[in-house]
Amino acid sequence: MTGPAWGLRGVTVRYGRATALDDVTLLTPPGAVVALVGGDGAGKTTALRTLAGALRPASGTVAAPALPEIGFMPTTSGVWRELTVDENVSFVAAAYGVRGAELRDRRDALLAQAGLDGVGDRLAGHLSGGMRQKLAFCLAMLHRPRLLVLDEPSTGVDPVSRVDLWRMISQAAAQGAAVAMATTYLDEAERASSVLVLDAGRVLLSGAPADVVAQAPGAVFRTDRPTVRERAWRRGREYREWSPDAASDLGTRLTVDLEDAVISASLAKEAAGG
């Protein structure tokens, strides 16, 4: 898994007067999966589109392979709904110059892996959401890209399809691809090599999942009755509450996981007036 780490270095992206990304660094080494997490409008899609070459940053540098070596899956899955599964594959293969036996082998392997091998003649618009996302992943992977950019590949996908998708993403990384993916599921992010937590276009936390958890500010408590509603959230049937003061007596202090860490960092930023 050698080679340059693709990514963004000190990148700022503006849409008119609004700053969508502010001095963001995202490194994606070959063979690794980097997960971008953050709330709505955090800048995940902007970061990935910049990495894929669809956006030009106002400042900073983008290190990315040439377009033929990038695989991109946009939020909207990016499949052509009026084309069949096979026609989608053929079109993308033609655009990337994959043809002949290589195309047949690659198509058969990917579609089988995605459980789409029996639906080649079905319109992509008639596939279920999960199947369409898996098809989009197959299209992004068809030409064996060195950098795979996936924008929320598992959003709206059923749990079984999510497992399939994650398996395919892991295999792509195992085969040497650098994978940058946005996700709203923190259990998925926990399985990534590293995590970048974005908030309002800025990096809140970054590093390996364990490091991100270790960086969580303050403390998290399990409680039946939150004292400050704005700092509490539900996990299953119970409440959790964050406090900047580890010595607080709000309930049972917990060992935080990634989800707690991300929420804590966000609340700490708010508490600091950010």
Partner: peptide
């Protein structure tokens, strides 16, 4: 516009075309 609405215009923009 169908291409834009379906998000595939974005896909075309990053394909080697």
């Amino acid at each position: 516009v169908r291409e834009r609405q379906a998000g595939t215009l974005e896909q075309l923009a990053v394909m080697p075309l």
